[in-house]
Measured scan of single mutants.
Amino acid sequence: MKVIFLQDVKGKGKKGEIKNVPDGYARNFLFKKGLAVEATPANLKELE
């Protein structure tokens, strides 16, 4: 799953980066803790 990092995550990505991460990791950790959002067209547009 492609995500946009909202904060630096040690060993995974830095704020503003767009990266592919495993689905479970994204849903169960990154999204729940507010560290990233899914890289949807709407979210990508907001990032610009």
Rank of each mutant, 00 (worst) to 15 (best):
M1Q: 06
M1R: 07
K2Q: 12
V3A: 01
V3I: 08
V3R: 00
V3G: 00
V3H: 00
I4D: 00
I4Y: 08
I4M: 08
I4A: 04
F5R: 00
F5I: 01
F5Y: 07
F5D: 00
L6N: 02
L6K: 06
L6V: 10
L6P: 00
L6H: 02
Q7R: 13
Q7W: 09
Q7T: 13
Q7N: 07
Q7F: 14
Q7V: 15
Q7E: 13
D8W: 07
V9K: 01
V9A: 02
V9D: 01
V9N: 01
K10P: 15
G11V: 01
G11M: 06
G11D: 09
K12R: 14
K12E: 12
K12F: 15
G13W: 10
G13L: 02
K14R: 13
K14D: 06
K14N: 10
K14F: 12
K14A: 08
K14G: 05
K15H: 05
K15G: 03
G16F: 09
E17G: 02
E17F: 03
E17L: 03
E17H: 05
E17S: 06
I18N: 01
I18D: 01
I18T: 06
K19F: 05
K19D: 03
K19I: 10
K19H: 11
N20Y: 15
N20G: 07
N20I: 15
N20E: 13
N20W: 15
V21N: 01
V21H: 01
V21Y: 06
P22G: 08
D23Q: 13
D23F: 13
D23Y: 14
G24T: 13
G24P: 10
Y25M: 08
A26N: 04
A26P: 01
A26K: 03
R27H: 10
R27A: 07
R27P: 05
R27K: 14
N28Q: 09
N28Y: 12
N28E: 14
F29N: 08
F29S: 06
F29E: 14
F29L: 08
F29H: 14
L30M: 02
L30V: 00
F31T: 05
F31P: 03
F31R: 01
F31A: 02
F31N: 02
F31L: 14
F31W: 02
K32S: 10
K32I: 14
K32R: 12
K32F: 09
K32W: 07
K33P: 02
K33L: 15
K33H: 15
K33T: 11
G34K: 09
G34W: 05
G34F: 08
G34D: 05
L35I: 06
L35N: 01
L35P: 00
A36T: 01
A36V: 05
A36I: 06
A36D: 00
V37S: 04
E38L: 12
E38H: 06
E38V: 08
E38T: 06
E38Q: 09
A39H: 07
A39R: 01
A39I: 05
A39M: 07
T40S: 09
T40M: 05
T40R: 05
T40D: 05
T40L: 05
P41T: 13
P41I: 13
A42V: 10
A42Q: 11
A42R: 11
A42G: 13
A42E: 14
A42T: 11
N43L: 12
N43P: 04
N43S: 08
L44D: 04
L44A: 05
L44V: 12
L44N: 05
L44M: 11
L44W: 06
K45V: 11
K45H: 11
K45I: 11
K45T: 09
K45E: 12
E46T: 13
E46I: 15
E46W: 15
E46D: 13
E46A: 15
L47T: 08
L47R: 08
L47G: 06
L47W: 14
L47S: 07
L47I: 12
L47A: 09
E48W: 09
